[in-house]
Amino acid sequence: MLTLAGKHISDPRKMSPFARLLHDLRMRHGIRQGDLAKLLGHHQGYVSALEIGIKGPPPPEFVEKLISVLDLGADEQEELHEAVAASDRKMVIDAEAPTEVFWMLAALRERVPDLHPAQVRMIREIVELPDQLAQRTQEPITRLKRRRNTEAKM
């Protein structure tokens, strides 16, 4: 069990990517939550709410200040920006999307709370399939040579 700001998180897998990364970054840099909050110019309660996922991902100004305060390298910055994007709880659907997209997302929204981890993995694999197929190197098709129809000598 993980304890953040006095609250028990029974399953760290149920934290948003940003909440988990913020906590991990703070631990890696050996800084207390209150001290980080002061350096960022925010109340400790806000940083705590971000860490346990009560608040959604922070605005870009907060992220840039966090990068500066913790002096994050390029890899950590990229990881942070990806976690912020992945933690966005809202989705905007293009008004001209096919009707079936709206129905699919409505069904998904209804069932998300009850999805089994295997279902989540399967859905992600389906969504990422075009990327995986594009990464495969296209092997040239080789033709098999036919044998001549000659009789074998005995």
Rank of each mutant, 00 (worst) to 15 (best):
Q77K: 15
F102C: 08
S16C: 01
D24H: 06
S48G: 10
S87D: 07
D94N: 15
A106V: 12
G41I: 04
V69F: 03
E100W: 12
K7M: 09
A74I: 11
H116Q: 12
M122C: 10
L50E: 01
V101G: 13
L108F: 13
F18V: 09
V120M: 13
W103I: 06
A37H: 10
V112E: 12
D24R: 09
I9G: 03
A37P: 09
A85C: 09
E82C: 10
V92H: 05
F102L: 15
R13L: 11
E76C: 04
Q77G: 08
K90V: 14
V69S: 09
A74F: 13
E110G: 12
Q44K: 08
D88V: 15
L21Q: 01
G53W: 02
E82A: 13
L115V: 03
G53D: 03
E78N: 10
K55Q: 07
H116M: 10
G34L: 10
S48H: 02
V69Y: 04
I67C: 08
A95M: 08
R109W: 10
E76H: 05
D24K: 08
E64P: 03
P60V: 12
G56V: 01
Q33K: 06
P17F: 00
A86D: 12
P58I: 02
Q119R: 09
K14G: 01
E76A: 13
L66K: 04
S10F: 01
V63R: 05
A19P: 00
R26E: 01
R13V: 02
G6L: 02
E110T: 14
P58H: 05
H29S: 07
D75L: 15
P117C: 08
Q33H: 05
A19D: 02
M15L: 13
R121A: 14
V63E: 07
K14S: 00
P57W: 08
L40D: 04
M15N: 02
G45R: 05
H8Q: 03
M15H: 04
G6V: 01
P57H: 11
R32N: 10
L25F: 01
R26K: 03
V63D: 05
D11V: 00
A83M: 10
L22M: 04
R111D: 12
H29K: 11
L22S: 05
K55F: 06
P12G: 00
L36D: 06
R26F: 03
A49G: 05
D88T: 14
A83C: 06
